[in-house]
Amino acid sequence: MPTPRPSRRTALIQIAAGAAFLAACPGRLLAQGTWPERTITLITPFGGAVDILARLIAADLGRRLGQTMIVEQKIGGSGTIGMAAVARAHPDGYTIGMGTTTSLTSAPHLIKNPGYDIEKSFTYLGLIQTSRQVLTVSPKLGTDTLQDFIALAKSKPGTLNFGSSGVGNSIHLAVEQFNAAVGIKAVHVPFKTGNETDAAMMAGDVQYTIASLATSLPLIQAGRIKALAVTGEGRDPALPDVPNLQESGLPVRIPDQLFGMVGPANMPAPVTSKLLKAVADMQADPAFQEAVRRTGGVPSQVHGEAFRKLTLSDSRTWGDLIKRLGITLSS
C-alpha cells in the first residue's frame, strides 16, 4: 500500500520547523560549510601602531584563509568601543578583533560596563607581538642614569610631571607601577596622543614617561629625549648601552605591551580550529616575523589558551595597581 503524501499544510510546517532549527544552530551549518565564504572583518580599537599591525595581519591571514580580510576602525573609550563590538558580533568567524594591553587588561577596571568580560566574552586566537617599553626623560632634566633620576625625583616629591596618552592606559599604569616601586611622587599629565607627550617632554614641560620602544626610538637616537632603562629581559639590540630595570636593581615588573587577536565567544569549533591554525602558521612564518620587527614589535608565537592566561595575569596586575592607588578616570 503506497505511503500517503503529506498535505501541503503539513509540508509547510515541516519546512518551517527545519528552517527554525538551522537558524538556531548556526554552528551546524558552518561545520558543514566551507568557511570562510565571504569577507572577514578585523576590528581595531586604536589607530597608529595597532592599525598598522592589523593591516599587516589582514593581508597575511586573508591569503592563508583564501578570503578577503578588511580592517575596520572602531576607536574610543580606551579601546572598549572596538572590543565591545567584537564581543557582541555574531560568533560565525566573520568578525574578529585586535586586543591590546589597554583594551583588554586595564580599561575594563576603569570603565563601568565596558561591554565585555575578558574571561567570558572572547575566543583568544593569538598574541601577535609584544612591545618593550622604555623609561625616557627630558634632556632638560640633566640626569644621565636611572639612579640619578630616581634620586632627583625623590628629593623633589610632587614637583616632577610625567606624561601619558590618557588616564588608565598602559603608559599611565606603567609609570604608576614604577613610581610606586621606587617611591617617587609625581604629577600625572595626560595627553590625547603619544606625540603630544613627546613634544611636552622635549620642551621640558613633562620630565619623564614610559612608552613603547618602537615609537620612542627615533627621538632617542636623535638625542631629543634620553633613555634610562628598558623593560623586559636583557638589553634591547637597538639600545645596547641602556640597562633593563632588573639589571638596574629595581624590584618592579612592568609587563610588555600586548597586541593580539580575539574573536567572539562561542564560535563553532571547526571555525575556531581553522582560525587558530592559520594564526599559528602566520606567527611561525619567518617572513611575517620580520615584517613585525620592521614595525618595531617583537613577534610572538603564543596563541589560544596561553594567550588567554597571559591576558588574565596582566589584567590582575593592572587591576591590583588601579585599586591600590585609587586610580580613576579623573586621576
Results as ranks from 00 to 15, higher is better:
residue 160 L to E: 10
residue 160 L to D: 06
residue 161 N to F: 07
residue 162 F to V: 12
residue 162 F to P: 03
residue 162 F to K: 06
residue 162 F to G: 06
residue 162 F to L: 00
residue 163 G to K: 09
residue 163 G to A: 01
residue 163 G to D: 02
residue 163 G to S: 07
residue 163 G to Q: 11
residue 164 S to R: 00
residue 164 S to H: 04
residue 164 S to K: 10
residue 164 S to T: 03
residue 164 S to A: 07
residue 164 S to C: 01
residue 164 S to D: 11
residue 165 S to E: 04
residue 165 S to D: 03
residue 165 S to C: 02
residue 165 S to I: 00
residue 165 S to K: 10
residue 166 G to Y: 00
residue 166 G to R: 07
residue 167 V to P: 02
residue 167 V to G: 12
residue 167 V to F: 04
residue 167 V to S: 10
residue 167 V to C: 01
residue 167 V to N: 01
residue 167 V to L: 06
residue 168 G to F: 07
residue 168 G to M: 01
residue 168 G to N: 04
residue 168 G to D: 00
residue 169 N to I: 01
residue 169 N to L: 08
residue 169 N to S: 04
residue 169 N to H: 02
residue 169 N to G: 07
residue 170 S to K: 00
residue 170 S to Y: 01
residue 171 I to G: 04
residue 171 I to Q: 08
residue 171 I to E: 08
residue 171 I to P: 06
residue 172 H to A: 11
residue 172 H to F: 02
residue 172 H to I: 04
residue 172 H to T: 08
residue 173 L to D: 00
residue 173 L to P: 03
residue 173 L to S: 05
residue 173 L to A: 07
residue 174 A to T: 04
residue 174 A to D: 03
residue 174 A to E: 05
residue 175 V to T: 13
residue 175 V to C: 02
residue 175 V to I: 10
residue 175 V to A: 06
residue 175 V to Q: 09
residue 176 E to M: 06
residue 176 E to V: 09
residue 176 E to T: 01
residue 177 Q to P: 10
residue 177 Q to E: 12
residue 177 Q to D: 09
residue 177 Q to V: 00
residue 178 F to K: 06
residue 178 F to H: 07
residue 178 F to C: 11
residue 179 N to T: 11
residue 179 N to C: 11
residue 179 N to S: 09
residue 179 N to I: 03
residue 180 A to D: 14
residue 180 A to T: 12
residue 180 A to V: 00
residue 181 A to S: 13
residue 181 A to C: 11
residue 181 A to F: 05
residue 182 V to T: 05
residue 182 V to S: 11
residue 182 V to Y: 04
residue 182 V to E: 01
residue 182 V to G: 03
residue 182 V to H: 08
residue 183 G to H: 06
residue 183 G to K: 05
residue 183 G to P: 11
residue 183 G to E: 02
residue 183 G to W: 07
residue 184 I to D: 00
residue 184 I to M: 12
residue 185 K to D: 14
residue 185 K to P: 08
residue 186 A to F: 09
residue 186 A to G: 08
residue 186 A to N: 10
residue 186 A to T: 09
residue 187 V to M: 10
residue 187 V to P: 11
residue 187 V to H: 00
residue 187 V to W: 09
residue 188 H to D: 06
residue 188 H to C: 02
residue 188 H to Q: 06
residue 188 H to E: 05
residue 188 H to I: 12
residue 189 V to S: 07
residue 189 V to F: 01
residue 190 P to F: 00
residue 190 P to E: 00
residue 190 P to I: 08
residue 190 P to A: 09
residue 190 P to M: 03
residue 191 F to V: 13
residue 191 F to I: 12
residue 191 F to R: 15
residue 191 F to Y: 15
residue 192 K to M: 15
residue 193 T to V: 10
residue 193 T to Q: 12
residue 194 G to D: 14
residue 194 G to P: 09
residue 194 G to V: 08
residue 194 G to I: 13
residue 195 N to C: 02
residue 195 N to T: 13
residue 196 E to G: 13
residue 196 E to P: 10
residue 196 E to M: 13
residue 197 T to N: 14
residue 197 T to S: 14
residue 197 T to L: 14
residue 197 T to F: 11
residue 197 T to D: 14
residue 198 D to M: 15
residue 198 D to A: 14
